[in-house]
């Protein structure tokens, strides 16, 4: 394949582990077969991407969204994947919202920038004071080592 010159591949260890999880325990998978799985997987992802890109173009969008991927799966007749993916998408969006909530901690502190600055300066002053106090109470004694 001309496309193989790009040297794109799926991580073999990941694929191997995945196969082990999926396969019934008494069945065995050969290395040759795993190579075909990897090549098939790359082929699938490329076709899925092209189709998703087409779906995005149809809607005059420049960015491929997850919804376009799901529409692409319909076109490719992999409808049975869709319910599971929609659930995963919900979970993903949920985790993103949690992240956003953490980022807005500043906004929810209810303190103005001036007040926060004053608090910080107070902490600096306390720290400097403590440092000064420690250096006075414990003078460094020089030791003769001979």
């Amino acid at each position: 394949m001309a496309g193989d010159s790009d040297n794109v591949s799926l991580p073999k260890a990941t694929v191997q582990k995945m196969i082990s999880e999926i396969l019934d325990q008494d069945l065995m998978f050969t290395k040759d077969a795993r190579e075909i799985i990897i090549n098939s997987g790359i082929e699938f992802i490329m076709i899925l991407s092209s189709m998703a890109s087409e779906m995005a173009d149809n809607e005059a969008k420049k960015t491929i969204a997850p919804e376009h991927v799901i529409k692409a799966l319909e076109e490719l007749e992999y409808n049975e994947f869709i319910p599971f993916l929609e659930e995963i998408l919900l979970n993903f969006k949920g985790s993103q919202k949690v992240k956003e909530t953490r980022d807005s901690k500043f906004k929810k502190s209810g303190l103005s920038e001036e007040e926060l600055l004053r608090q910080q300066e107070e902490l600096f002053r306390q720290s400097r004071s403590r440092l000064h106090h420690n250096s006075v109470s414990d003078p460094v004694k020089s030791e003769d080592s001979s």
Binding site: G3, D6, V8, L10, V15, M18, I19, I22, I37, S40, G41, I42, F44, I45, M46, L48, S49, S50, A52, S53, K62, T63, I64, A65, P66, H68, V69, I70, L73, Y78, F81, F84, L85, I88, L89, F92, K93, Q96
Partner: peptide, 29 residues
């Protein structure tokens, strides 16, 4: 990275590789 080896593929949103990756897992399964 694999998706964008195809030069026709432009921008993708953050969730798209996640969903595409899971699709791939289902396909392999």
């Amino acid at each position: 990275k694999i998706m964008q080896t195809d030069e026709d593929i432009g921008k993708v949103s953050q969730a798209t590789p996640v969903i595409a990756g899971r699709s791939l897992e289902f396909f392999i399964a």
